[in-house]
Design a protein around this nucleic acid. Structure first.
Lengths: 151, 151
DNA sequence: GTCCCACCTCAAGTCACCTTGAGGTCAAGA
DNA sequence: TCTTGACCTCAAGGTGACTTGAGGTGGGAC
């Protein structure tokens, strides 16, 4: 298996559960930086496994890959997040989560006030909220990730 | 303005706040079915405004356009949702919302248990939850909509 | 010698939801 | 008469996170 040092992309894929193509994609996006052996094959450090698991977790919290890269870029190259990094970062996650939960709860409260009304009036209906809608809409896709609308 | 009966696409756009291109897109997707006047221009009924506002609200709740079309297809063509329709549908919204909120709260609780740990171990870390991750991942984009990751 | 497997690159496709652009029609107003 | 503006169609572009496919390399097993 280890003709040269480090782990192959296949081994990394097996350990993280990621597809090989996804790992290559993450490299292209600058999230990881494996080196190459003499045959031009990617070689990974064990720290890369934790970097990748950090990527997966951060995605659960709704971070985009560029945002995740910013966090990883604060760490020395090839290093995985330490406990201190994690404490700092997880506070950010926590804040973002609270925001999302609060927004959904506001929506739920509004909906509760509207069940049985059914006016759907553009002028009067609180559900049709231009302000929140504007905030939720941008160019490109909007992400649900941890909460797809599987109802 | 009304050379013939009904409303023009520009008027509908002004009243709903939607872009003209979006309205044409919704027609292509079968969410609305305006008729054409002698000049080949789209003409809309007033009920279409409520249909479109229903589309916008349902999107806030995380429904995809095909899902929304299913709901609208239960109504007679050209009809807007009535109070009875709305009560039925809003129960569905409510259930979906509860599911999403519950999922985020579980994630928050897990995170709270992990702040200060920072192991990020693929074997031990509860944050790296293959089951939930698998549920959240599918082909194509995953949506956040009402809760974009703006942290 | 040949087969297979794991790996490589680069381009293009996928998904949902639209927007943008090119090129054209038609009627009203200056 | 000319221009403006609102509308039309159809094709292609953009977003994020990947996957898929074509075509190629290198090394070990039979």
């Amino acid at each position: 298996m280890s003709a040269s040092e480090g782990l192959s992309i296949g081994e990394i894929a097996a350990r993280t559960g990621l597809a090989v193509s996804a790992i290559r994609y993450y490299e292209a996006e600058g999230l990881i930086a494996p080196w190459r052996n003499s045959a031009g094959r990617r070689r990974f450090q064990r720290a890369d496994i934790r970097r990748l698991s950090f990527v997966m977790i951060a995605q659960q919290f709704g971070f985009t890959l560029p945002q995740i890269r910013v966090e990883l870029d604060r760490l020395p190259r090839h290093r995985a997040p330490t406990k201190a990094d994690w404490t700092r970062i997880s506070q950010t996650f926590r804040t973002g989560l609270d925001t999302r939960i609060a927004r959904l709860e506001r929506l739920r409260d509004t909906l509760d006030g509207c069940i049985g009304c059914g006016c759907l009036s553009l002028e009067a209906c609180a559900l049709y909220n231009p302000k929140d809608r504007a905030a939720a809409r941008g160019t490109g896709p909007r992400y649900l990730m941890g909460d797809s609308p599987d109802m």
